[in-house]
Amino acid sequence: MLIKRIGFSMIVLSIMLTAGCGLRLQGSYLIPSKLQTMALTSQDKYSKLTRLVNERMRLNNIKIVELDKSTPRLNLISDSLERSTLSFYPTGNVAEYELMYHVNFTIQMPNEEAKPFQVEIRRDYLDDPRTALAKSREMNLLVNEMRIQAADKIVQAIAAFKQ
């Protein structure tokens, strides 16, 4: 009985210590109070990136509202994917690519100029022409992971935003 109480006390003590030192779970950000309600605008409100950013904002307790003059605004301006060659097989076929995913966005406070931001995610991707279908699926998975990482970085930028 005493051992159970000591064990329970140790667990409670460790939880209190980690909470007290500011430890937060990955992907969980402390959003400034002035940015806990925002408007989200985009060129394509149905794009995968817009949906991911919307989801990430909701997960971090940012209320998304319609755009008006008194609401801070996150504007997703553009996203693009580039691919460049890194290496070749001795036969001359491409062996490795570098994928670069770029996102441009702004954060604008009411009655202020919009502040521009850019996120860039890079990944290396091995290519084998003998397994084209599998490599195509792998590339789609990589691009989706890059979008998720970009959405997380956008929420990070909101959390770190200073006027």
Rank of each mutant, 00 (worst) to 15 (best):
M109C: 07
F105H: 01
L52A: 10
I11K: 11
I148A: 06
D152I: 04
S70F: 05
N60V: 08
T18M: 15
R122G: 05
R137G: 09
Y125V: 07
T37L: 08
L52G: 02
R51Y: 09
K4P: 01
S80K: 09
L126I: 03
L40C: 03
D79S: 11
K115N: 05
M109F: 04
S28R: 12
I6F: 11
L30M: 12
T71I: 14
K45M: 04
D127E: 10
D44M: 04
I11H: 03
K69I: 11
G7E: 14
C21A: 04
Q118N: 09
R122Q: 13
E98Q: 15
I62E: 08
S14A: 13
A39Q: 06
N61C: 00
E55W: 04
S47A: 11
Q43N: 15
N140T: 05
Q163H: 10
E66W: 02
T18H: 02
L49Q: 05
F161L: 07
K162S: 12
D68V: 01
V94M: 08
M146E: 05
Q36T: 14
E112Y: 07
M38E: 01
L76V: 02
A114C: 09
K48F: 10
D128W: 01
I107V: 09
S28V: 14
R147K: 13
L30A: 14
P129Q: 09
E66N: 14
A114Q: 09
V53C: 03
R122C: 03
K34D: 15
V143L: 05
Q26T: 09
D127I: 05
